[in-house]
Each structure stands twice: as structure tokens, then as C-alpha cells.
Design a binder for these strands. Structure first.
Lengths: 270, 270
DNA sequence: ATTCGGCTTTTATCATACAAAAAACAGAGC
DNA sequence: GCTCTGTTTTTTGTATGATAAAAGCCGAAT
């Protein structure tokens, strides 16, 4: 039942991540643990799992208190967080009602994480791929058009880091940095959070992602093409370079999808 | 100071809106007022206004209590909402620190509203237009490819409502419904919240938007083309139809932008 | 000088009490 | 019998006060 772990791992994490990373924190630290956060986590995940359908009433605060063994304060603060994410709405005498899916802030990091843990991962991956195919080519094109020297330098630095990556996690980190740099270079503040959310979701999905050990460096030439196009300030070339890279990704997504939807085939690993 | 209207309209709304509106509630009801919400509103708006830069510490809870004349409970619940939106992070002994902009959940309805109230509206409008030009053609194309009969019916119903609209607000409502219907027909759950956020932001910006009285019906032919393309299940035609409509919008955005950036020209109205 | 331990500030959590909203119910008036 | 109205009750909203835990600060001891 919803293990709210209160062990000492939190302390260690806290000590480690004090100084902010150099420039753009690629991976946001995983938000320190606390009671209300755990409770919100649990309830939010349950909602996304469909345990409480939109329109239904959640158990009242007292019941949650009992269920989690925490005070009303903690439960209420958790509820407030879920309200802030558009998952629920609560009113006196009524209780907390799950809002229609359309109002859920699916583009919130947490909500997206719960969703992608709950939903059919193949569906999720396919939809994600669609969004990437819409956004990323245009983002790169904008970057090619609008980049300044400093932004270009960051893109190149990230590329170098990718080229030098030896481990899977190093490669993923550098890859994320590369994409974020392009995002920033596009010069559209609204695109930035969108891209970040996508990356954060891909991170969650990474067991399904093409990030296998053999993939390190395989897509490096593709990334180089993007880099060159942006450096040369050729939007159309950048667009095409990204599309070409995404075609590769799509191939893999389709592969995963077909191996998952046909239960007869073996899935490779547990 | 943050007028919290508490009149009896809420009761009427409550009674009327028990049964959910036909299919997709076009405009989410404006989230009932409450103390913690007002406080969150105020603090959030201030952060977006730049009154508290990223990295700085907010006043502690006690000070907020005093400033707003509310209890610590209310302040804390407000803080929790802002935490949920990625604006701040708080820790014992430290206080609440404003997170770097990259972590702000700018795609949250509230945050976007605060942002677009605080930022340079012209910049905002231009960026928004860019995002629309990226997303909407592809959304329509997907809708043309994936729509089912029911979704098509909703699109047509919305279009009829637009055609019959006499007042500005009726037209805006129907327009929003039209776009939402297309969004849903695209069949990608990740695109839906994105589109909704954009519409909600456009609603906020609507003084700068092309929604002048004379515009009622002017773009109706353009919308009809979109409708026909989706009905005929021709993605490329849908894409082009949306692009053509957006060219019109962009013309107006540029007009607003140039009249705003050159302070010499007169702005039409206060 | 360095390290260890208490001091202090601030949030985190708990407990309790009361206010307010709104549904449900009961009773008066017709 | 029906409706309208006032009361009751349930649930969240807000206030208050107390205690716990985190983490910077500072002084003392080695």
C-alpha cells in the first residue's frame, strides 16, 4: 500500500546536489522528498492510472489521512498540488472531484511521468514521436535562423560531449544538452518548456527508447548534419537534417510497437 | 487588492452545470475563488513579473501572512501550488527560492496567464504565433487523416455555430470549439493540452487579438476550407488551409507589433 | 586550524477548533 | 400532496499553536 518511504536516502541526495551545474541544468534534480509530495505522488499516479475516473469523487481528506497515516495538513497540501496541476477540483461539502481529462495539465513533468507510467507505453511512444516530428524540425529551423554566437558555441560543446561519450548515461546527458541548446537557440520562450517536457518524458520511457549501448555514436553523423546546418544558418537544411534523424527514431518506435502488439513474438528482455 | 468576488452567481452556475456540457466543455469555469488561490495568484504573478528573480529567496511564510493578513495555512497551501507549477522550491531553514526559468511550467494555464500579463505582449504574441504556425497545420493534417465520424460531426457543429454567431463573444466561443474539435480529432493526447493552453492564452491576449467586431465572419471562408479538407480526409489540403488562415493572423500580429514598437504611431485606442 | 556540537531560523508536520458552503432533510403553509 | 423554507449535517476552508527536522552559523575544544 503506497509505501511512503522515509529512509535516509533523501539526506544523501540533498547533500550531493547543492551547487548548481555550470550553465543550463540539463537534468533537474528530482525534487526532494517530503510527506505531502509522496502523498500527491501516490494520489496523482492513481488518478492517471484510472483508479479514479474523471467526474468521480475522491475519498475525503479524513480517509486519506487514515490510509496514509498522515495528518490532514499533509493530505491537504498534496491535494493543493494536484489542484494546481489541473487534476482535481475540490469544494466544501462536495469533496475533491477528478476533472475531465481535457483539463489535466498533461504537459506538467509530474503528470506526464504518471501518465507514461500508467498508459500503454506503445501508444505513448507513438504520440510522443508524432509531437517530436511536428516540433523538432521547426525548432531546428528557427535555431538556424535566429541563433547567436553564444548559443552556437553551446550547441557545439554539447555535440563534442556527445562525440566523446563512452557510457550510455554520458551519451544521454550530452544528447539532452544538445537538444536543449537548439531549443534555446530557437529564441522562442514558449518552445523551451515544451521541449524540456518531451525530453523529461523520453527519459522516463528510456527502457523503450533506442538508447541501447550499441546506439552510442550511431546517430552522431545525423547530429552533425544538424549542427552544420544551424552553424551555416540554413533553416531548410536544418529541418531536413532533423527529419532524417527522426526517421531513424520512428523506425525504432515502429519496431518496438510491432513487437509489443504482437504478443506472439518475444520481447527480447524482461 | 485581488478582488475576491463572492456573489451568488456561483450557485446558479453550480445548479446549471451539474450535467456536463454536451461533449467538451469549451471554456473551463474560472476556478472558484478561495484564499489560498488568491494568495498563489498574487505571488505567482509577482514572480512572473520579475519582482522576484530566479535564484532569489521569497519572503518567509510569516511575512506573507502579515502582508496578506491571512493564516500560515493559507500561505503554505499557496506556496504548495506554486511548487507544483515549478516556480519555486522550498526547504527548511532556507525558505522558498525561485527556480530557474527553465523549470517553470510555462505551459500551465495559470503560469501562462501570469506570464502573458507580465511580459511584453508583442513578444508574447509573436512567439505564440510561431508556435501556432508550427502546430496547427500539422494538427489539422492529423485530424484529416485520423478523424472519425463523431469527431467530424463536432467539427461541423462548431463551424455552424461560428457561422451563426452574431456577437463577438459567441464567435470567439464557437471558434475555440472549432479548434478544440480539430485537436481532439487529431487523436493525439499530447497535442490536446497544448492546444488548450494556446487557446487559453489567446483568450487572455484578446485585446491584442484580431477579434474585432468587424472580424466576425471574415475568416469564415478560411475555416470552411479547413472543414472541407478534414471532411475529405485530405491531410495536405488541411495543412495548406490552416497555413493560409494563419497567414492572415500573422499579418495582423505584424500590424500590432509594428504599431507598438514604433511609439510615434498612434495606437488606435487606449 | 579544524572539527564537533549546540543555537537559531525556517519550513514540515501534527493536532484541534471553528467557519463556510452546499446538499439533504424536515416541517410549515398552501 | 406539493412547494417553499429553514435547519441539519457533511466536507472542505481557514486559523492557531505546538513540535520536529533541516541546515546554516558560531563558538568551543582539541
Amino acid at each position: 500500500m503506497s509505501g511512503v518511504d522515509r529512509n535516509n536516502s533523501a539526506r544523501a541526495r540533498a547533500r550531493a546536489g547543492r551547487a548548481l551545474p555550470p550553465k543550463g541544468a540539463v537534468a533537474a534534480q528530482p525534487a526532494r522528498s517530503s510527506l505531502h509530495r509522496s502523498v500527491a505522488q501516490d494520489i496523482g499516479a492513481r488518478i492517471l492510472k484510472g483508479e479514479f475516473a474523471p467526474g468521480t469523487l475522491l475519498p475525503n481528506e479524513a480517509e486519506w489521512c487514515e490510509k496514509f497515516g498522515v495528518s490532514r495538513t499533509a493530505v491537504r497540501e498534496a491535494i493543493k498540488m494536484l489542484m494546481a496541476k489541473g487534476l482535481i477540483q475540490s469544494r466544501p461539502k462536495i469533496g475533491s472531484r477528478v476533472l475531465p481529462r481535457a483539463q489535466w495539465n498533461l504537459l506538467d513533468r509530474d503528470v506526464l511521468a504518471w501518465y507514461c507510467a500508467a498508459a500503454n507505453p506503445v501508444h505513448f511512444l507513438i504520440h510522443m514521436q508524432q509531437v517530436r516530428e511536428i516540433l523538432e524540425p521547426e525548432t531546428a529551423a528557427l535555431a538556424a535562423a535566429n541563433r547567436n554566437a553564444e548559443q552556437m558555441a553551446e550547441i557545439e560543446a554539447a555535440f563534442l560531449q556527445m562525440a566523446e561519450a563512452k557510457t550510455l548515461s554520458a551519451w544521454n546527458y550530452a544528447d539532452a544538452r544538445f537538444h536543449q541548446a537548439i531549443l534555446l537557440a530557437a529564441g522562442n520562450e514558449l518552445l523551451v518548456p515544451l521541449g524540456l517536457v518531451i525530453e523529461s518524458a523520453l527519459e522516463n520511457m528510456f527502457t523503450y527508447t533506442a538508447s541501447q549501448r550499441g546506439d552510442i555514436g550511431r546517430t552522431l553523423p545525423g547530429h552533425r548534419k544538424i549542427l552544420l546546418a544551424i552553424r551555416a544558418q540554413k533553416p531548410e537544411a536544418a529541418r531536413q537534417a532533423v527529419r532524417s534523424l527522426l526517421r531513424d527514431t520512428r523506425r525504432i518506435v515502429n519496431l518496438v510497437a510491432s513487437s509489443r502488439t504482437r504478443p506472439a513474438s518475444r520481447r527480447g528482455r524482461a
